[in-house]
Amino acid sequence: MKFVLNLYLDSALPGLDHEEFLTAARQAGELIGGHAFADPSISVAVRVRDGSVTVTEGPYLQTPEHVAGQYVVDCESRERALELAALIQDAGIEVRPLMDSSGLEM
């Protein structure tokens, strides 16, 4: 079962050490990939409502925490995904199952 691990950070926190997580997930063959996100201050939010497009510079939400990155893992169970998430220190981790997207064309 595939899960996305969204990493939430306080923007004041320094870079994180993910080595324990990366080692465990790679050795078990469970790590599919991951991405670190740039600072939210340089993001752009796009909304379409009733055919009208609105573009807003800056972070989508004004909060002390932001999504700093994500990993995608393929684990046997939700419990295993939670075990892996617990190896990442100093971040809030959202563990969310991925839906089957095999019918989507990209």
Results as ranks from 00 to 15, higher is better:
K2T: 04
K2E: 15
F3L: 06
V4A: 13
V4T: 11
L5M: 07
L5S: 04
N6K: 04
N6W: 08
L7V: 15
L7F: 10
Y8H: 13
L9R: 15
S11T: 09
S11R: 13
S11F: 07
L13V: 04
L13E: 11
P14A: 13
P14E: 11
G15E: 15
G15L: 08
G15P: 05
L16H: 03
L16Q: 08
L16Y: 02
D17I: 05
D17H: 07
H18F: 09
E19V: 04
E19N: 13
L22K: 05
L22E: 13
L22N: 12
L22T: 07
L22Y: 00
L22D: 08
A24L: 08
A24Y: 02
R26T: 15
R26M: 11
Q27T: 13
Q27S: 14
G29P: 06
G29I: 10
G29F: 10
G29D: 12
E30D: 13
E30R: 06
L31Y: 10
L31N: 03
I32G: 00
I32K: 05
G33A: 10
H35A: 13
H35K: 11
A36S: 13
F37S: 00
A38M: 06
D39T: 07
D39Q: 07
P40G: 09
S41N: 11
S41V: 14
S41L: 10
I42E: 11
S43H: 09
S43V: 04
V44G: 00
A45T: 15
A45C: 05
V46M: 11
V46Y: 01
V46E: 02
R47T: 14
R47C: 07
V48G: 00
V48C: 11
G51F: 13
V53G: 00
V53M: 11
T54Y: 04
T54I: 12
T54R: 09
T54Q: 14
V55D: 01
T56A: 12
E57L: 09
G58I: 07
G58N: 10
P59M: 11
P59W: 05
L61S: 07
Q62P: 00
Q62N: 13
T63G: 02
T63S: 14
P64G: 02
P64Y: 03
V67L: 15
V67P: 00
V67K: 02
A68Q: 00
A68V: 01
G69N: 04
Q70A: 15
Y71T: 02
Y71V: 07
Y71W: 14
V73G: 04
V73F: 03
V73P: 03
D74F: 04
S77R: 06
S77V: 09
R78W: 06
E79I: 03
R80K: 14
L82P: 00
E83A: 12
E83F: 07
A85M: 04
A85P: 01
A85N: 02
A85E: 03
A86G: 13
L87K: 04
L87V: 06
L87C: 03
I88K: 01
I88Q: 01
I88L: 02
Q89S: 12
D90M: 09
A91F: 11
G92H: 07
I93R: 01
E94C: 09
V95P: 01
R96V: 13
P97Q: 10
L98Q: 08
M99R: 10
D100F: 09
D100N: 15
D100Q: 09
S101A: 15
S101P: 00
L104G: 00
L104H: 03
E105P: 00
M106H: 09
